[in-house]
Write a protein that binds this DNA or RNA. Sequence first.
DNA 1: TGCGCAAGTGAGCATTTGCTCACCAGGTGA
DNA 2: TCACCTGGTGAGCAAATGCTCACTTGCGCA
Lengths: 338, 338
Amino acid sequence: MREELRQDEYELLARLAQRYYVDERTQEELAAEFALSRPKVQRLLERARRSGVVAIHIQAPPWLRLELESQLRETFGLSDAIVCSAGADQEAEREAVAQRAARYLERHLHDGCVVAVSHGRTVGAVPRFFRPPSRLDVTFVSAMGGSPGVAAPTNPNEICRALAAGCGGEAVSLYAPAYVESGEIRDQLLAQEAISQSLDRAAQATVALVGIGGTDDGCTMVRSGCLTTDEIAWLRSQGAVGDVLGNYVDIEGRPVASPHQDRLVALTVDHLRRIGTVVAVVSEPEKPRAILGMLRAGVISVLVVDEDNARAVLDLAAGGPAMAGRAGGGSSASQREV
Amino acid sequence: MREELRQDEYELLARLAQRYYVDERTQEELAAEFALSRPKVQRLLERARRSGVVAIHIQAPPWLRLELESQLRETFGLSDAIVCSAGADQEAEREAVAQRAARYLERHLHDGCVVAVSHGRTVGAVPRFFRPPSRLDVTFVSAMGGSPGVAAPTNPNEICRALAAGCGGEAVSLYAPAYVESGEIRDQLLAQEAISQSLDRAAQATVALVGIGGTDDGCTMVRSGCLTTDEIAWLRSQGAVGDVLGNYVDIEGRPVASPHQDRLVALTVDHLRRIGTVVAVVSEPEKPRAILGMLRAGVISVLVVDEDNARAVLDLAAGGPAMAGRAGGGSSASQREV
DNA sequence: TGCGCAAGTGAGCATTTGCTCACCAGGTGA
DNA sequence: TCACCTGGTGAGCAAATGCTCACTTGCGCA
């Protein structure tokens, strides 16, 4: 809300702002020159900023989407958001998102970190770009079991191995399927020390790297054989919009309980809540609802996402329809406004 | 000098700037998030400002000339400069300059101040606008004698009286002519206690309000009868470009000695140098050389001037020809650049 | 006219930012 | 390979700005 200014006030704000920002005078100096108190000058300068008399523009590289990122951070309380500008095709967008996620990890991981890793095509693309400048003593742990129904680079164990290879770290595999026939079988598996140890290790991780799945018939949970198309249809009918590690939530971020849950060998949403930094990567199209649901669940700290999904999520969150079209590149100069 | 940035550096600067200026994060927070030291973040942000990645614009009222003012202050080491946007005619410009000067005085004078006042048409217009919100116990003293050859509102005594009337202060008149026939007569006048006391009072002033005169045949010193047209022509031939209180300087601000000097009843340039704040007001056209000379003399602290003269002075100071034409209004949004 | 409330104000302290300085790292030339 | 120079760096202190709080001022209402 821009506040209205009386003319003489407008003029005073402009003069003070000019002296402060352009002439680089201190508030104390301006206070003396304008016969005001220093706190008064501070307040007037703040007013100048709030009212738009002072406009701060960031002239960013055109491929950045800093405004979108700021909006995501602010709207969802994320500690970071990284939006990748639109790529040539689906594969290019996946690579861009994976590259950004790899860069994020390179910058934030340090010796001793433990990273829990989920399945997913975009997550699976991250190791391709993960090359820290120096060796990192980091442990990568599978956060869910494996699925023979999808390609190896999509499986957590393979992703962990590739990430560890990229930095000279260590991979801890979870030698179990992502999904079993019954809860009893799952309990028997978890009773095996090697498996429960791995999962405990993942649960104690400092960072998690996860994908966000949708609820369409072609989602990873269906492709990997964890769920049937009937089961995913049922989850949809219960309001489920997306999942992380097989944990489904509705559009408001509330968990959608389902009978398949106790057959999963994976970290739960409550586990994720206790991990310091949960990095979610998404590049497939038509996932704004899934992203929004997971963001509202409040377990994600960092979102690395393609531009279309980012815009659509913000639109959805603001109560509008998801924008399907491209919003056009243009400059990303941002403006300080309220 | 804009510095060149490597692409990854450019991107980092932009990201940091966005987080700092738009998201309003502290340098400490950013240091943690980007795995940098806090001083490093400070340096990068400064770099972002210097390089233009961060651009700060002041959206000023269109009638202000903040950029011009900043340039004047910086070029001439003024403690303040106030430029009045072009008026409808000569009279309107004089009123605008006088009004700004009155405003300046209202804000800067306080009880106990002593203001030494010169002659001049623009100076004479100031009392018309001088209306402080509350009574000011200020003394206004004539800094030079009077001249029957010019209208009463141009004479220092009358100006002092009017200013004092405007704020409930006191006027101290100098009952002497501005100019006498010989140095002996001047010495006799100064031997009179009332006159020397008044001049001493003026010399001890905290503020001076003066006009800047030119060296054309129609200048105030000629019109008032202080100088003949021959004398002013001679001063021109000696390089004189302008005066304050009858003290002439050349284009570099060096005093131009002349025989008429010891016949003046007025403060000298050395007196002015000892006054804390010397406010000069100019509104007549074609005075850039006079203004430049006086500014270079270094006795002026505050310049209140019309827009055309302001531009012309800066142009002259930069070594270019004085611009005679109007530069066109437009927005005065300023930009932080190096 | 008096009272109550909201907004404004400056003193003073807390926090953030700017800057100095000793040290380190990298590059260059002998 | 070594010495020297330049630029970068973080520790730590100085300076500037942000913010809390007690008090004041101005406005609206009875």
